[in-house]
Design a protein around this nucleic acid. Structure first.
Lengths: 216, 216
DNA sequence: GTGAAAACAAGAGCAGTGCTCACAAAAATG
DNA sequence: CATTTTTGTGAGCACTGCTCTTGTTTTCAC
């Protein structure tokens, strides 16, 4: 059982999410293909296990990086961003599983993936909250539609965040900005060999982004 | 031949990139499966055709939106971002094909995809260039590593851009920021039903982002 | 210890996939 | 009209996810 996830992870790293084959995993496991269905009801179930697995590892990495960083909110933000990128570059297939195209026909069971799936944004929000409390988060007033205000109010309550609407939007910009930059690099969307020094680019991008969202 | 792409596009929209089946397309085409190999050497070849197709349509949409917007650089930027999102929301499968996880085993042939694939960033760079020339792009000096300076110099030359290093980095932040936000929405990565008004969120995000990268 | 119950594995089989290849019908060209 | 080129056929290979029936272990209560 644990072995299935272990070998599944290996195959995932080797062939990518969509090419992940239960039969191949069974072979590697030295067992006939149908035997795997004793432990896992379907390929999607296995994907869910691997998704949770990946979310957890990424969450661990980010939380550890934030904890290891200093008190400075901006430094913590940069550490979190760096941790995301480092993990993604080291585990492109698992990153793709979680942050790429949803696997065809696959519907993530919310009850099992939302918990681990929110660890990064929770960590980011905490950094923003601390910054706001320390007066190190400047808020640029944005033009926010009423429907959005309702959404943001719900989120503020759910996470118990002290951020105002504009700051919350800024946090989502930081969030999507990090993953946008990482995805571009990991998925090779900058174009072929456009950047020889992707990590240097990422550093500069995150510096710009952290300043942009008001972190100082 | 054109029919293959046409039906391929329909299937793509219906089932997503990874589940796209040549045999199913052949059936819809009223032809035996092996016949389509007369026109397309492999499934990957078909994917390439569809990728180019998607890039072109997105490029058209963005260029048209920018042209229809006023002279104001910021307005043009917002128009471009909105065009990306609108197309992505309308064509999630095709968006996924191009900006999601690379299809397993698929290697995009650079010579056929790089041209159409760069139209969005070219449009963005033009907006930034115009803004810079009009003095409407403030440059916040970033800490840029020497290796990155080399990359940026190459890019500046390739695109004939007048932007300085920090402004170029800001442009990549805008670029990846747009697609990061769009991907989060299209791929449902914000979490289940977190935002009831995604377009309002996007507007606010892009407003924040445009200000953040120095566009005024 | 023995017998029932639960857990595990095997193997055949179904429907689907990408792709190849020898062959036949149709269309264009001389 | 004859010949070449193009287009389509159908069988077949190796693979996939998944189901179902059968058999083998292991565990556990008595």
């Amino acid at each position: 059982m644990r072995d299935i996830v272990r070998i599944g992870r290996e195959h995932l790293a080797a062939v990518g999410p969509a090419a992940l084959s239960l039969r191949a995993i069974a072979r590697d496991l030295g067992v006939v293909s149908s035997a795997v269905y004793r432990y896992v009801t379907s390929r999607d179930e296995l994907l869910t296990l691997l998704i949770v697995d990946a979310y957890d590892e990424l969450g661990d990495a980010v939380e550890a990086a934030v904890a290891a960083a200093g008190e400075d909110p901006r430094g913590r933000f940069l550490a979190a961003a760096r941790a995301v990128r480092t993990w993604a570059v080291a585990e492109p297939s698992r990153y793709a599983l979680v942050f790429g195209t949803p696997v065809p026909g696959y519907r993530a069971p919310g009850d099992r993936t939302t918990g681990p799936g929110t660890r990064v944004i929770v960590a980011l929000l905490r950094i923003f909250d601390e910054a706001a409390r320390a007066g190190q988060l400047v808020s640029t007033a944005l033009d926010i539609a009423p429907e959005l205000r309702a959404d943001l109010a719900r989120i503020r309550e759910e996470y118990g965040s002290p951020l105002d609407d504009s700051q919350l939007v800024a946090a989502t910009v930081a969030w999507t900005g990090i993953f946008g930059a990482v995805s571009f690099e990991v998925f090779g969307q900058y174009g072929t060999d456009t950047f020889a020094a992707p990590s240097a680019l990422f550093e500069a991008q995150m510096e710009a982004l952290s300043a942009a969202v008001g972190l100082s």
